[in-house]
């Protein structure tokens, strides 16, 4: 039906143009044929990949699964484990920010903030325990 041989000496415009067209198809150079073959192979591969059972398609999802796992792990590490004993961090975020503020600030009268921390270490240890016990009783 489609692969009519080239005919010459044809009468109608349809026959003549068809023969010319099929001649030109046969005359496609090797490079173009090669590119068409590559395109065909890619298409066949794409189609058969869709038709494979799910077990054969696991490899397709591996990169996405890896990225998702990394993201979950990152969030987990950033927020800390909700199952652990980081009650101060989770339950009393406000006090954590206050502590950070004290550490970061520089008191002109006392010099470096880290020096102040060393001087009042016992006080901050007590404050930390008080915050934990307060959170436990309120919770």
């Amino acid at each position: 039906m489609n692969e009519q041989p080239p005919e010459h000496g044809l009468d109608t415009i349809e026959e003549r143009s068809r023969a010319l067209f099929h001649d030109s198809v046969e005359g496609l150079d090797f490079a173009l044929r090669s590119r068409l073959t590559q395109a065909r192979n890619a298409a066949v591969e794409a189609a058969s990949a869709r038709r494979r059972p799910w077990i054969f398609r696991i490899g397709t999802w591996t990169p996405a699964a890896g990225v998702t796992a990394a993201a979950v792990l990152g969030v987990f590490l950033w927020l800390g484990s909700p199952l652990g004993h980081h009650a101060v961090t989770v339950a009393d975020g406000q006090s954590t920010f206050e502590d950070l503020e004290i550490v970061a600030s520089v008191d002109e009268a006392t010099g470096d903030a880290m020096d102040m921390l060393q001087d009042d270490f016992e006080f901050y240890d007590w404050a930390d325990k008080a915050a934990v016990s307060g959170a436990a009783t309120s919770g």
Partner: peptide, 19 residues
Amino acid sequence: EYRRELDKFLGEIERRAFR
């Protein structure tokens, strides 16, 4: 077999489609 059928179909049609 499905791959072979699709490959055959595209192989028959590709050059005319390109032209």
